[in-house]
């Protein structure tokens, strides 16, 4: 599903974020990525979502070579990928409903269909009945779940989560991880960047370790 071969990324300021990284993540797999901050986890995500291009090497997502992907086809790629951030990246002046609906609104889906799917997605992450609230009135864990609902509402084939449990206590972290595991169960490829060794141990999935841009893989 995701394949990197000999990928290096050097930013214009000279920082080399990834050094000749090769990896392959199969369809339906759930994989953790660890590494201290600045080890290249965010860059890896930016390459997969075509926010950045590799300086060297090839990134393939769902068989598409992102290096050759024309600008106008980027939206279609991103609709296949749900992204979750540590800081949620919610629109604070919009309701929970509007936040979660955004990926469907950009598709031009009819309003009543959107409403149906937003309610279903919010139900799945345990936020039933909170559509009308503003994200600011929710707790950190609830905001994270709004972010998850937004990431999965368009039924993407890949989920990327960047430190999704970073600011949450253990119980909430468990809940969030279990939501990801549920999506993985139904065939979604899940890639989670985290520091949370407890979760990695608990889930028992393949783990990739990045150290200063280089990849060290653990079983």
């Amino acid at each position: 599903m995701i394949q990197l071969s000999q990928v290096s990324k050097r930013y214009p300021n000279g920082h080399e974020a990834l050094k000749s990284v090769s990896l392959e993540i199969a369809q339906g797999e759930m994989v953790f990525v660890t590494g201290h901050s600045g080890a290249g986890k965010s860059t890896l995500f930016k390459l997969i979502t075509r926010i950045e291009r590799p300086t060297q090497g090839q990134v393939l997502v769902d068989g598409k070579n992102l290096g050759r992907l024309p600008e106008r086809k980027i939206p279609a790629l991103r609709r296949e990928i749900g992204v979750i951030f540590q800081d949620h990246k919610l629109l604070m002046d919009r309701s929970v409903f509007d936040n979660v609906a955004l990926p469907l609104i950009v598709l031009g889906m009819p309003r009543n269909e959107i409403a149906k799917r937003v309610r279903a997605a919010l139900g799945k992450v345990g936020l039933h009945g909170k559509e009308k609230q503003l994200p600011i009135t929710l707790s950190g864990g609830e905001q994270q779940r709004v972010g998850i609902a937004r990431a999965v509402i368009n039924r993407p084939s890949i989920l990327l989560a960047d430190e999704p449990t970073g600011n949450l206590d253990e119980d909430l972290s468990d809940e969030i991880m279990d939501i990801f595991a549920d999506f993985n169960q139904v065939g979604v490829t899940v890639l989670i960047a985290t520091h949370d060794l407890r979760q990695i141990e608990r889930m028992g999935k393949r783990t990739l370790h990045l150290n200063e841009g280089a990849l060290i893989e653990h079983g």
Partner: peptide, 16 residues
């Protein structure tokens, strides 16, 4: 800006 960034991320086209 935030709204534009997020819209781009969830696959909003330039036209949208």
């Amino acid at each position: 800006r935030d709204e534009i960034e997020i819209t781009k991320l969830v696959g909003g086209t330039n036209g949208f």
